[in-house]
Amino acid sequence: TTYKLIANGKTLKGETTTEAVDAETAERVFKEYAKKNGVDGEWTYDDATKTFTVTE
C-alpha cells in the first residue's frame, strides 16, 4: 500500500511517499524521515486517503 506524507515544517515543506504493509509501518518510516530532516511537529493521519501530515 502506498502512504503519503505531507510535511509542513519550518525547514522542510513538501510531499513524499512510501510503500508499507500497514499504516503503523508507514508512520515509523515517516517519523524517521522527519527526524532526519529536523521536522518535529503535530502529526495527523487520514485513513481514507492514506495520508500523514506533520505540521510545525
Rank of each mutant, 00 (worst) to 15 (best):
T1N: 14
T1V: 11
T1F: 14
T2M: 11
T2P: 05
T2D: 04
T2I: 14
T2F: 09
Y3E: 01
K4T: 15
K4Q: 05
K4A: 04
K4Y: 13
K4E: 02
K4R: 12
K4D: 02
K4N: 05
L5R: 00
L5G: 01
L5T: 01
L5A: 02
L5D: 01
I6C: 07
I6W: 05
I6Y: 07
I6A: 05
I6T: 05
A7C: 15
A7Q: 07
A7D: 04
A7T: 15
A7V: 15
A7M: 15
A7P: 03
N8T: 12
N8W: 11
N8Y: 14
N8H: 12
N8L: 15
G9R: 03
K10S: 14
K10E: 11
K10W: 11
K10C: 14
K10Y: 11
T11A: 09
T11K: 08
T11L: 12
T11P: 05
T11Y: 15
T11G: 13
L12S: 07
L12M: 11
L12D: 05
K13N: 12
K13F: 13
K13H: 12
K13T: 10
K13C: 15
G14I: 15
G14C: 14
G14Q: 11
G14M: 14
E15G: 06
E15P: 06
E15V: 13
E15Q: 10
E15W: 12
E15M: 09
E15S: 09
T16P: 03
T16D: 04
T16L: 15
T16V: 15
T16K: 09
T17Q: 09
T17F: 15
T17D: 05
T17G: 03
T18M: 13
T18G: 03
T18L: 14
T18R: 05
E19W: 15
E19L: 14
E19K: 13
E19T: 13
E19Y: 15
E19M: 13
E19F: 15
E19V: 15
E19H: 14
A20L: 03
A20T: 05
A20E: 04
A20Q: 09
A20F: 05
V21S: 12
V21Y: 12
V21N: 12
V21P: 15
V21H: 12
V21G: 09
D22C: 05
D22Y: 03
D22N: 10
D22G: 04
D22F: 03
D22Q: 03
D22A: 03
D22I: 02
A23I: 10
E24T: 11
E24N: 09
E24C: 13
E24D: 11
T25H: 14
T25I: 08
T25P: 02
T25V: 09
T25S: 14
T25E: 15
A26S: 02
A26H: 00
A26M: 02
E27L: 15
E27A: 10
R28V: 08
R28S: 08
R28M: 10
V29F: 15
V29Q: 08
V29D: 05
V29E: 08
V29S: 06
V29Y: 15
F30I: 02
F30A: 00
F30P: 00
F30T: 00
F30K: 00
F30C: 02
F30L: 04
K31W: 06
K31C: 05
E32A: 12
E32K: 06
E32L: 09
E32I: 08
Y33A: 03
Y33N: 03
Y33W: 15
Y33E: 03
A34H: 02
A34P: 00
A34G: 03
A34I: 07
A34D: 00
K35S: 11
K35E: 11
K36D: 10
K36W: 08
K36P: 02
K36R: 12
N37A: 10
N37Y: 14
N37T: 06
N37Q: 11
G38C: 06
G38I: 04
G38M: 06
G38K: 07
G38P: 02
G38E: 06
G38R: 06
V39T: 04
V39E: 03
V39A: 04
V39G: 03
V39F: 15
V39S: 03
D40H: 13
D40Y: 14
D40K: 11
D40L: 12
G41H: 02
G41Q: 02
G41A: 03
G41P: 02
G41Y: 03
G41D: 02
G41K: 01
G41S: 02
G41V: 03
E42F: 14
E42D: 13
E42I: 15
E42A: 11
E42G: 05
W43L: 03
W43T: 01
W43P: 00
W43C: 01
W43E: 00
T44A: 11
T44E: 11
T44H: 12
T44Q: 09
T44D: 09
Y45S: 01
Y45G: 00
Y45W: 03
D46C: 07
D46P: 00
D46R: 03
D47Q: 10
D47S: 13
D47Y: 08
D47H: 11
D47K: 09
D47L: 06
A48Y: 10
A48D: 12
A48E: 14
A48T: 13
A48P: 07
A48R: 10
T49L: 07
T49W: 03
T49D: 04
K50R: 12
K50G: 04
K50Y: 08
K50N: 08
T51K: 03
T51V: 06
T51I: 06
T51A: 04
T51G: 02
T51H: 02
T51F: 02
T51W: 02
T51S: 04
T51C: 05
F52D: 00
F52N: 00
F52V: 01
T53H: 07
T53R: 08
T53M: 09
T53K: 06
V54W: 04
V54Y: 03
V54P: 00
V54N: 01
V54T: 02
T55N: 10
T55H: 08
T55W: 11
T55K: 07
T55I: 10
T55G: 05
E56M: 07
E56D: 11
E56L: 07
E56F: 08
